[in-house]
């Protein structure tokens, strides 16, 4: 199975957000691989290996990212986990929106013809949750979003995808090729059944760590560098950021001396009752 996985670098979500000139100041950002994308890489690796003998690959995983040269670091991290090759499309974050990203990935998919596109369900920076849906639309492919279970069925021609919904787990079957976006529980020990790894095999919880061997091997794996122009992408933004503001700080509370006063203030000052 040939899988294309999209990955994005995001600023460390635990860092405090600073604003400068009505924009988020990212000059001191600690960039890291978007967590859901890391899960997608892990899912792709589990789909393309026999866990009893993970050194032998049963498929090919290509990781793709749009971004400046520094994104190589996140691509290398995915290669160190075990992905086979990478593509970086040179661009600046401020020149991208979900539509440009979806159209760019579409071009790569049409060029490379993967059997499956795996993506994180959203990126932790603006939590957009758009690119997968747009990409499936452009490609005219079936899509399954928020996957927490993936099972290869019909001899590799389709996937059974479990999605966590309010009432339980909804199972959908999608024919390949397809676009699947993954949720947190896709990295549970037995979330993925690829037909080769024994069904009772339990992976450790979470995405795998890059091993020392993986890091050394990643150095020799190819990263293809492309530009938006080479892919004939019109970089016209459909979404523009006008300004960014922090939510207003909460005012200090006050003490009231009686229930009467509380009700009075809620009614007359806060006007909530």
């Amino acid at each position: 199975m040939k899988i294309l996985v999209t990955v994005k670098r995001v600023p460390d979500p635990e860092q405090k957000i600073k604003l400068k000139d009505d924009r988020i100041d990212l000059s001191a950002a600690n960039w890291q691989l978007n967590q859901f994308d890391e899960y997608a890489v892990e899912a792709a690796l589990r789909l393309t290996e026999d866990a009893r003998n993970p050194a032998t690959r049963l498929g090919e995983v290509t990781v793709v990212s749009l971004g400046p040269a520094e994104v190589q670091q996140q691509l290398r991290a995915a290669l160190a986990m075990g992905a086979d090759k990478a593509v970086r499309v040179d661009s600046r974050d401020e020149d991208l929106d979900a539509d440009i990203v979806a159209r760019t990935v579409e071009k790569l998919v049409r060029r490379d013809s993967p059997d499956l596109v795996l993506m994180g369900k959203l990126a932790a920076d603006n939590e957009g949750n758009e690119v997968g849906q747009r990409l499936a639309g452009y490609l005219g492919w079936p899509q399954a979003t928020f996957a927490s279970i993936i099972e290869v069925v019909e001899g590799g021609k389709a996937l059974l995808v479990g999605r966590e919904v309010d009432a339980g787990v909804e199972m959908k079957k999608v024919r390949l090729p397809a676009v699947v976006t993954v949720d947190l529980r896709i990295v549970a020990p037995q979330a993925i059944k690829n037909g080769r790894t024994p069904p009772d095999h339990a992976y450790p919880e979470g995405p795998r760590y890059a091993s020392l061997k993986g890091i050394m091997a990643a150095k020799k794996k190819p990263i293809e560098e492309l530009t938006l122009a080479q892919l004939a992408i019109q970089p016209t933004l459909r979404v523009r950021t006008v300004s960014v503001r922090l939510p207003p700080p909460r005012k200090a509370g006050i003490k009231v001396s009686s229930v009467q006063e509380l009700v009075d203030k809620l009614h007359n000052e806060a006007k909530v009752i």
């Binding site: 670091q73 290398r76 991290a77 160190a80 760590y209 890059a210 020392l212 890091i215 050394m216 150095k219």
Partner: peptide, 19 residues
Amino acid sequence: MDEATARMIVAESYDFARQ
């Protein structure tokens, strides 16, 4: 080994130690 690899070794081993 190159510097980029060394940086990655630092980052990944630190992650491993913490996690």
